[in-house]
Simulated scan of single mutants.
Amino acid sequence: MKIVVYMPALNEELTIAGVLNSLPKSICGFQKMQMLVVNDGSVDSTEIIAKECGATVINHTRNKGVGGAFQSAVEFALQNKADVLVSIDADGQFDVNQIPNLVEPIIYKKADFTIGNRFDKGKPTDMPKIKYWGNKKVSNMVSFVSDTEILDASCGFRAYSRECLLSLNLQGQFTYTHETILDLLNKGFKVSQVSVDVKYFEERVSRVANSITKYALKTSSIIFKCLKDYKPLQFFLTIALIVLILGMLLGSFVLWHWVFEGKITPYKSFGFIALALCGMSVFIATLAFLADMLNRIRINQEKILVLMKRRYYD
C-alpha cells in the first residue's frame, strides 16, 4: 500500500517547510509514503524549500488555481501507483497528525473518500463569520444537489482511494472541492466525514475565497453546472414546469376577463404571451428528455474512460 500526501502551494516559502517536516514519517496501513507539492506558479523559494524537505515537486509555469493543481496531483498519484491520495493545505492550518484518522475509513473499506469537517464543534476560532456563513450555505447547496448531507463541502483536507481517482472527471480550474463531491457521489462512491481541527491566521488571505463575491459566483456556477449535468431530466423539467405555470396563470387571467367581461381587450397581448410560454414549456420538456439521453451516453463514456485509465496506469 502506498499513500501520497499532496499540497498545492503558491508562494508558501514561510510555512511549507514546517508542514512538510511535521508530516508523519509513516502511516499505519501503508508501506510507502510520498510527499508531493504542486508549485502553482510561485515566484518565491517554495520549490527549493520543498525539494530540500524531500518532497517531489510539480511546477506550473503559471497559476492554474487549486482545481488545476489538484488535477496534476491526481495524475501524479495514478502514475505512481498510489492507493490513497491525501490533500492538505501548505499554510499549516490543518493538523497533519490527523491524517491517519482521515484515511482510516478508506483502509477499512468503510468509505471510498473522506472529507474533513471543520465545523463539528461549531464555528472554528478566528474564522470570519461571513466565511462560516458562506461555507454552511455552500454545503447546503451541495447537499441538495447530491441528496447527501455534506457538513463541510469546502474543506481541502481530504483523502481519496485509487478507484475514486480513476473515476474522477473534473472540468473546473477555480476549485475542485465541490465538484469532486458531486462527481463521486453521483457515481455511487461512499463518503465519510471526519472531524478535523483547523487554525486561522488573521494575516493570511485565502487563495480561493479572497473575494467572497467572486467565490460565491464561481462556486454557484460549478454547482449549477453539476446539477445540470448529473440530473438533467429533473433540472429541465423543473424549468419547464415553472414556465408552464406562468403561462397557465397568465392564460387563466385572460380567460377570466373574457368570461366576465365578454372580451379580452385590453389583455390580448397577455393571451399571446401565455400561449408562447406554454409552447416554450413543451420545448424545454423536449430538451429535458434529450439531455437525459445525452446523460446516459456520458455515463457510459465515463465507464469506458475508467477502464482505459485502469489499463493505462496499472
Score class of each variant (00 low, 15 high):
residue 192 S to L: 00
residue 74 V to P: 05
residue 215 Y to H: 11
residue 94 F to G: 01
residue 74 V to Y: 06
residue 264 I to H: 01
residue 262 G to K: 13
residue 67 G to C: 11
residue 265 T to Y: 15
residue 41 G to L: 02
residue 167 S to H: 08
residue 280 M to T: 15
residue 220 S to H: 13
residue 144 F to V: 00
residue 52 E to N: 15
residue 308 M to R: 15
residue 264 I to T: 14
residue 56 T to S: 02
residue 267 Y to F: 15
residue 137 K to W: 06
residue 239 I to R: 15
residue 76 F to M: 03
residue 232 P to N: 02
residue 185 L to G: 07
residue 291 A to I: 00
residue 285 A to I: 03
residue 57 V to H: 12
residue 168 L to A: 08
residue 129 K to Y: 10
residue 252 S to R: 12
residue 226 C to D: 07
residue 176 Y to K: 10
residue 117 N to H: 11
residue 295 N to M: 11
residue 49 I to Q: 10
residue 145 V to D: 01
residue 38 V to R: 09
residue 227 L to H: 08
residue 225 K to F: 05
residue 169 N to Q: 12
residue 230 Y to C: 02
residue 86 V to K: 11
residue 45 S to A: 08
residue 63 N to Q: 12
residue 157 F to R: 06
residue 123 K to M: 13
residue 261 E to M: 15
residue 130 I to T: 14
residue 27 I to R: 03
residue 8 P to F: 10
residue 288 A to E: 07
residue 299 I to Y: 09
residue 154 S to H: 10
residue 229 D to L: 10
residue 197 D to W: 02
residue 179 E to F: 02
residue 306 V to P: 04
residue 279 G to Y: 07
residue 1 M to R: 15
residue 106 I to H: 02
residue 260 F to W: 10
residue 149 E to Y: 08
residue 104 E to T: 08
residue 202 E to D: 13
residue 248 M to Y: 05
residue 93 Q to A: 09
residue 59 N to A: 11
residue 30 F to G: 02
residue 126 D to M: 05
residue 306 V to L: 08
residue 138 V to L: 12
residue 159 A to E: 02
residue 105 P to D: 05
residue 166 L to H: 05
residue 85 L to H: 05
residue 10 L to E: 01
residue 150 I to V: 14
residue 157 F to G: 03
residue 134 G to K: 12
residue 117 N to T: 03
residue 287 L to C: 07
residue 25 K to V: 01
residue 247 G to S: 07
residue 193 Q to Y: 08
residue 104 E to D: 14
residue 95 D to A: 03
residue 132 Y to Q: 06
residue 117 N to Q: 14
residue 167 S to Q: 08
residue 230 Y to H: 13
residue 183 D to S: 12
residue 124 P to Q: 02
residue 286 T to W: 11
residue 304 I to K: 15
residue 204 R to P: 00
residue 169 N to E: 09
residue 97 N to C: 00
residue 210 N to V: 03
residue 256 W to P: 00
residue 210 N to R: 13
residue 124 P to M: 01
residue 248 M to E: 05
residue 47 E to D: 10
residue 94 F to C: 05
residue 297 I to D: 10
residue 98 Q to L: 06
residue 13 E to N: 06
residue 222 I to R: 06
residue 11 N to P: 05
residue 58 I to Q: 09
residue 56 T to H: 13
residue 17 A to E: 14
residue 284 I to T: 04
residue 105 P to I: 00
residue 23 L to I: 02
residue 148 T to W: 05
residue 15 T to V: 07
residue 7 M to A: 13
residue 87 S to L: 12
residue 195 S to L: 07
residue 49 I to V: 09
residue 136 K to N: 06
residue 301 Q to G: 00
residue 77 A to H: 01
residue 226 C to W: 01
residue 124 P to V: 00
residue 102 L to V: 04
residue 60 H to L: 10
residue 299 I to S: 06
residue 26 S to E: 13
residue 100 P to N: 09
residue 101 N to R: 15
residue 290 L to P: 01
residue 273 I to D: 01
residue 272 F to N: 10
residue 50 A to C: 04
residue 47 E to A: 04
residue 289 F to I: 08
residue 185 L to R: 08
residue 73 A to E: 14
residue 307 L to K: 15
residue 143 S to Q: 11
residue 37 V to H: 07
residue 9 A to D: 03
residue 175 T to Y: 06
residue 189 F to Y: 15
residue 113 F to I: 01
residue 136 K to F: 03
residue 34 Q to D: 10
residue 185 L to T: 09
residue 182 L to I: 03
residue 263 K to I: 10
residue 132 Y to T: 03
residue 229 D to V: 04
residue 304 I to M: 11
